[in-house]
Design a protein around this nucleic acid. Structure first.
Lengths: 356, 356
DNA sequence: TTGGACTTTGTGTGCGTGCACACAAAAATA
DNA sequence: TATTTTTGTGTGCACGCACACAAAGTCCAA
């Protein structure tokens, strides 16, 4: 492994000069610079990250803005991934603080701006679930020259400081749900898509899932395959039940349900009560209730959005930016895992483990 | 972050003594040792891996025994994962050589013993596809005190030097295939399981998959659901075609096929020729031909065994063993990904990327 | 009381890099 | 020509740790 010293020897200069070339600090004669770069190429010099992180005593602090509730377990998993990542870059002089906000409460994300821009932090990892507030936050980052990574939901914008997006592709998740239900129901079956959430309009996720779901059928030139519903009062089980009964009455051929949130377990419970376990179900996220549902309801598939990896890779992008001087701007869409009783164990195992 | 120096100060000893306690080098008075350990606990001292790897100039060399053909692309992916891992531990004084063997040729794995035990290598990463020879190799490791990790296929044994197994759970993969076909076919449909491989007897994978497949049905108390076949001459397409035609004639209600290898694309081709795209297919591995097949054949699902992660985590176990002094013995079963046209892109993306 | 053998403890050096600083040479200005 | 400014280059230290080696302490027999 070539070291700076070797490069210096080969180029006939001192290590200080090589250092200046590597870090583009200027103050190097043009011809010398070329010589050094040639030596670097010839020796295939790669900086030793261990030595680099040891030498720069800098402690990069990262601010992480994460919702504190919603489907709690989902964000808990994000948390885990973030902590795992922070742990593994700890020795390289990185640390981070998770700043929680209530994404059902207007202005709560924005109120974090004071803490985030108080001068301690050098980068921001943000889950921009509230579009308008997140936008303003990112604008502030641009102003102050603070790099940021978006996780979990993507607000498209091309700016200098952006380090891209890490998360799921909700549109494809919708198509995937359609495919599964198509596969698991008779050709002439009717389907339904249910948004089980209060505020669908402001949830870009859910709308993208619906769009992807629709796209699947238009691509196949199938019309009127599904009905689209929103169910708001998810906590009131009797109300939910009567809505489902109504739905089944209205559409006798209904044989598959796509639930765009993690509440699919509520539906599987109702269907079991009604003795309608012939209906295929597809929902999202490996939350505890859904895992229980997998054990009880045969025709259930969950789509895993990999929350813990989102957090993990999000932090890693910031690490790469600062320590490897490698800045990625493109989106990273994590694999949409299809999970059912037979493979859920492996997913749960991975959720809780280190990278070994 | 507490350093050795801080621990030494707190315990009222020198850094040398702390070092001896940390590495259990002996030559420390009992009461002093306890004092130091208490200080470590109080300060929550964690060694700085960057500094550690810099200080020990040791270059740990890893031997990696990998088959050179079989479904080539499968091992190519393993290769990628191994290289990615080696790259990321490069700066910590780790390097490795991939030693290929022909697992269709008796004695070829064993012939690697000379290179592997020539004294250069400190650990072995092995894909024990040939049971008897791999066993002997691992016995040699035990004798010489060389730690080893098994990937891709597991030969159960409890020994000192073992650092466990990283790979798929073939039994569960079989159950998963059954579940998918159950979901995608009518209740009274007949299924078939096809081994498309010459030497099924010696392929522990395939047998485990078959067992898992069967288990699914016995758990549901369903009898005679499937027929079990081996197709040897997979390269002769006309012969294959006639076998499929025969199969469809023998079992008119046949509506789903489970192929235990990566050759499912051959079957989808035949079925398209026969105009029988109503038949559900489940096969293995994201090899190029299968990915093409996904685009053409609607009712096809692939089970991904994560070859590149197997290699990656395999190397990481060795890294953790030497640098973190953390030795894991338990098996790590990677998630069995269900892949179809709608989510294949994400899987392919991950296959080729770094961890950012 | 001294010397030797052994045990326990402390000190110093180097790993590869980043960065501050010293210094020399060249260029600009007085 | 003398002085200042700019540009280019080299040197030395620190980062936290492992490890070799030196030093100090302990014990006991002569």
């Amino acid at each position: 492994m070539a070291r700076i010293k070797d490069v210096a020897l080969k180029a006939g200069v001192s290590v200080g000069t090589v250092d200046r070339v590597i870090h583009d600090r200027g103050k190097v004669a043009k011809d010398v610079e070329l010589k050094v770069k040639e030596a670097i190429r010839l020796l295939n010099y790669q900086p030793n990250l261990a030595a680099r992180s040891l030498a720069k005593k800098a402690n990069h602090k990262i601010a992480i803005a994460l919702p504190d509730h919603k489907s709690d377990e989902f964000w808990a998993d994000q948390n885990k991934g973030i902590h795992r990542a922070l742990h593994s870059v700890r020795n390289f002089g990185f640390s981070g603080d998770i700043l929680k906000f209530n994404d059902q409460k207007k202005g709560d994300l924005l109120s974090l701006r004071v803490s985030i821009f108080n001068g301690d932090y050098e980068a921001l990892l943000i889950a921009p679930t509230i579009k308008s507030e997140a936008l303003e936050m990112m604008n502030l980052c641009e102003e102050k020259g603070m790099p940021y990574v978006q996780i979990n939901s993507l607000i498209e914008r091309e700016e200098d400081q952006s380090l891209g997006y890490v998360g799921q592709d909700s549109f494809k998740a919708g198509s995937l749900g359609a495919k599964l239900l198509d596969f698991g129901t008779p050709k002439d079956a009717k389907l339904a898509l249910l948004h089980m959430e209060y505020d669908v309009e402001n949830s870009t996720h859910l709308l993208a899932k619906e769009a992807g779901f629709k796209k699947y059928w238009t691509d196949l030139n199938v019309e009127n395959k599904a009905v689209y519903l929103q169910i708001a009062d998810v906590e009131q089980s009797d109300k939910l039940k009567s809505q489902i009964i109504q739905l089944l009455e209205d559409f006798p051929k209904l044989n598959g349900l796509f639930i765009t949130t993690s509440r699919v377990h509520l539906i599987s419970d109702v269907l079991m009560q009604l003795g309608r376990e012939d209906i295929a179900l597809v929902g999202f996220d490996l939350v505890q209730e859904n895992i229980e549902a997998l054990k009880k309801y045969q025709k259930l598939f969950l789509i895993n959005q990999n929350p813990s990896l989102q957090g993990y890779y999000g932090v890693m992008r910031i690490f790469d930016h600062f320590l490897k001087n490698k800045s990625v701007k493109e989106s990273k869409y994590l694999p949409l895992g299809i999970v059912t009783l037979e493979n859920v164990d492996n997913y749960l195992y991975m959720k809780d483990r280190d990278n070994i």
